[in-house]
């Protein structure tokens, strides 16, 4: 497959994630849209790693990118556990998951 298709697919997924972060007020949905953007970046990294494999003479060329994707997934898992704990704490204090309640720093 040409690389253009993968670039445009990843861009479409990333933009949908950006739109979700901008228009939704539910904190959990915003968090899920961030995960969607991370996955779009991962998909593009893997696609480019396969190009590197095809053009390089080294047999293991392109495996660095896939290791990076693995570490992105590791960091995302750690991030989700802490982020959901923060959302649970926020729900316990305000009884809502609306992000518009979190404007106390404004004044």
């Amino acid at each position: 497959m040409p690389i253009n298709y993968y670039i445009f697919l990843a861009l479409a997924l990333f933009s949908i994630g950006v739109i979700g972060v901008l228009i939704r007020r539910n904190a959990i949905i915003i968090f899920m849209c961030i995960e969607l953007m991370l996955n779009a970046a991962n998909l593009l990294l893997v696609a480019f790693s396969k190009i590197h494999t095809a053009t390089s003479s080294l047999p293991t060329a392109g495996s660095d990118a896939q290791i990076f994707v693995f570490f992105i997934m590791v960091v995302a898992a750690a991030e989700v556990s802490v982020g959901l704990a923060i959302i649970v704490m926020m729900y316990r204090n305000t009884h809502s998951i609306d992000v518009n309640f979190l404007n106390r720093l404004k004044n």
Binding site: M1, P2, I3, I7, S49, T53, A54, T60, A61, I67
Partner: peptide
């Protein structure tokens, strides 16, 4: 990005053993 890719690179599908567990495990 439509303009930057002048020579269309093909992504290798179904080939290569870079993404297999054996290779990635060794590097990891």
């Amino acid at each position: 990005l439509k303009q930057t890719v002048t020579t269309v690179q093909m992504v290798e599908t179904n080939t290569g053993n870079v993404g297999l567990i054996e290779n990635l495990g060794k590097i990891l």
